Computed example of a mutant assay.
Amino acid sequence: MTLSMDENFARLLSLKDTMTPWALRAVVTLGVPDLLADGELGVAELARRTGVVPDALHRVLRLLAARGVFTEPAPGVYAPTSLSRLLESGQRCMSLHPWLDLDGAIGRGDRACVHILEALRTGLPVYERAYGRPVWEDLAADPALTASFDTAMASRATALAPAVATGYDWPSARHVLDAGGGTGTVLAELLRTHPHLRGTLLDRAPAVTAARDIWGATAEGRRCTFTPGSFFDALPLGADVILLVSVIHDWADEHAAAILRRCAEALPPDGRVLIAEHIRDDDAGATAGLLELDLLMLLVYGGRERNLPDFRELGERAGLRLGGVTEVGGGLSLLEFLL
């Protein structure tokens, strides 16, 4: 069906929407969804509690009400919806709050995307252009940013963990090293689901410390070693499975291959590397969400989303061969690499 000029124009206008994404981020950063969690409030009271100008806030809320994020039961009075519930900070698993908070690590990365033209001209990330240092150095220099990043990753890991824990032949494994596992959400679920497993969690010191504080005293924590470190350095020995959940897409090919080489060096002859990632399916047509993430990986981290041949080639560069690939739901796949 051919669209008319008016229909095409309307479609393009919807694609170019600038204000809604930033209005969403603004109200999340101000905590408006939390303030409305218990019921309706007037714009004057919302402005007083958030320290902003009432008229300016009213313009933002009117737009978001028109988009269905809030309702306006009376002029200048706003109330929550099922959409705004997903923006509240207290919703650990299904909240978009850590992903939209402009004061947090992810929101900081989003702000760097205004330099997209430079990324197109250089093929390099633009985060350093915005903040003076690469993203990982920036996070390491600010404990609050590090904590917000770990919170966002933990919320995502909570959604992924059951699929990882049930989508692989874990009964044949003995000891799993979760490299770059953040605060250990996936590893804790693995150890809880498979009581025979032992685990090692490796990540930056703040994440590992937080993991130990959160679940180190549990039955799962007593079967886990909490190890601060980097997957670019020699990895701890003893694991027969090394797990990388949403790690490889953060990195350009050179660095991704280096991570996999470290994994290969640390494994016994029967060892396996298990990568949990979204696979870009160029034949069937990748989803718009994955293509958006692919662009974001370039702009902020210098990484990329990959198709199956890309993953196979990375493994070969590290001395690993691709074994099985299992789709476990939600677009997530488990890729098994063997020595």
Rank of each mutant, 00 (worst) to 15 (best):
154 A>G: 08
57 L>Q: 03
268 P>T: 08
337 F>Y: 12
30 L>G: 06
335 L>V: 08
160 L>T: 13
276 A>E: 01
63 L>C: 06
162 P>V: 07
286 A>D: 07
68 G>S: 11
47 A>I: 08
262 R>N: 13
53 V>I: 10
103 D>W: 01
35 L>A: 13
249 H>G: 05
295 L>C: 12
93 C>A: 15
128 E>H: 06
59 R>L: 15
107 G>K: 09
327 E>W: 00
5 M>C: 07
31 G>L: 07
122 T>L: 10
99 W>Q: 14
334 L>G: 06
88 E>W: 02
221 G>W: 03
175 H>N: 09
8 N>F: 03
221 G>E: 04
337 F>V: 05
220 E>M: 01
56 A>H: 11
297 M>Q: 15
198 R>S: 14
198 R>A: 14
290 L>H: 07
231 F>Y: 15
268 P>I: 08
123 G>V: 05
200 T>F: 00
291 L>R: 15
278 H>S: 13
192 R>G: 11
184 G>Y: 04
9 F>D: 13
333 S>E: 04
251 W>T: 07
138 D>T: 03
234 A>F: 01
257 A>R: 14
325 V>G: 02
278 H>M: 14
212 R>L: 05
272 R>G: 05
315 G>F: 05
134 P>G: 08
62 R>M: 11
219 A>V: 13
28 V>W: 02
241 V>N: 06
114 V>H: 09
25 R>D: 01
332 L>F: 02
148 S>F: 02
161 A>Q: 05
100 L>S: 04
47 A>G: 10
258 A>Y: 00
13 L>C: 12
151 T>S: 09
286 A>R: 07
202 L>T: 05
57 L>K: 07
8 N>H: 08
291 L>F: 01
114 V>F: 06
141 A>H: 04
287 T>G: 15
49 R>A: 12
328 V>Y: 07
269 P>S: 09
61 L>M: 15
38 D>L: 12
312 R>G: 11
297 M>N: 11
69 V>F: 02
